[in-house]
Each structure stands twice: as structure tokens, then as C-alpha cells.
């Protein structure tokens, strides 16, 4: 358990991301926890979709990595946080990578920016040559 400010974070699951099948597994785990936290169906779907986008990024551009899902409580609020860690080439220009349409892998380039729009909080740290850490958070409404 970890306290940052008034937020208590408890690790709920850890999934390695090394193949397509593991993205599917992560989606299922995230869905189960979103249901357990009482998320509405739309919020479940948004968070699972964001997880799927970022998991694919980790796999395709980061050369695989790990996803850590934790449960959050802040007073009466509950939420979920998902952190993706890879040791890949990193992102040189984060601002540009967040823009819709940016892609280095031949896709539509909706991954990072899209995932950010689907969540309440979005954080990204990256160092060229060292890897990337992306963290997304969603709170249950009311």
C-alpha cells in the first residue's frame, strides 16, 4: 500500500505484456476490477479500451513490458490506476506523440491521445533509450 496525498493505492494485479494474447488477458482483468469498483458500464468500457490502446503501444513500440493495476481510494472516492512500464526506445517528443494522427507504427495514431481522452488522469514519462512509463487513472463518478 502506498499513500500519496490523500490517495491510497493498493496493487491489485500485474500482467506481463509480451504477446497479443496478454493484451486480451489484461482487458479481462481490468474489466473485472472496474466492475468490482462499481464503475458504470460506459466507464468500464472507456477504461478497458484505454488499457487496450496502451498495452498495444507497450507491446509494439516498447518491445513488451508490464502493466500494474491498482485500486485507489481517496476519502469516499474510489478509482483504478493502470501503469505501463517498458524498457523500449522511449519517446523523444511526447507532445507530438500525444497529438491525434501521430503514429510510428502505421496505425491511425489514436493510441496515446485517445487513451488520454478516455481517462480522468494521464501521466507519461519517457527517456529516449531508457523506456516509457504511462499511467492512467479513472475515478468512479460520485
Amino acid at each position: 500500500m502506498m499513500h500519496v496525498g490523500d490517495v491510497t493505492e493498493t496493487l491489485a494485479a500485474e500482467v506481463g505484456l509480451r504477446s497479443d494474447e496478454e493484451i486480451v488477458r489484461l482487458r479481462q482483468i481490468v474489466r473485472d476490477h472496474a466492475i468490482a469498483q462499481g464503475f458504470s458500464l460506459v466507464d468500464q468500457t472507456k477504461f478497458v479500451t484505454a488499457a487496450s490502446e496502451l498495452a498495444r503501444n507497450t507491446l509494439q513500440y516498447g518491445g513488451g513490458g508490464d502493466a500494474r493495476l491498482s485500486k485507489l481510494t481517496n476519502g469516499v472516492r474510489v478509482g483504478l490506476r493502470l501503469r505501463f512500464v517498458d524498457r523500449g526506445p522511449g519517446i523523444a517528443d511526447i507532445e507530438r506523440a500525444l497529438r491525434d494522427g501521430f503514429t510510428s507504427g502505421g496505425g491511425l495514431g489514436l493510441g496515446l491521445g485517445g487513451a488520454r481522452r478516455l481517462c480522468d488522469e494521464f501521466e507519461i514519462q519517457s527517456e529516449p533509450g531508457k523506456g516509457t512509463v504511462v499511467s492512467i487513472t479513472k475515478w468512479k463518478l460520485r
Binding site: 458500464l41 460506459v42 468500457t45 490502446e53 491511425l108 489514436l110 485517445g114 481522452r117 478516455l118
Partner: peptide
């Protein structure tokens, strides 16, 4: 397509 999926896709920009 389920409503929650449709809402998410629109938010995603697709």
C-alpha cells in the same frame, strides 16, 4: 454495436 462501445469509440475519435 453496444451503446457503451459506441460512446467510447466516439471519444477515442473513431
Amino acid at each position: 454495436m453496444q451503446p457503451s462501445v459506441a460512446i467510447t469509440l466516439v471519444e477515442l475519435g473513431l
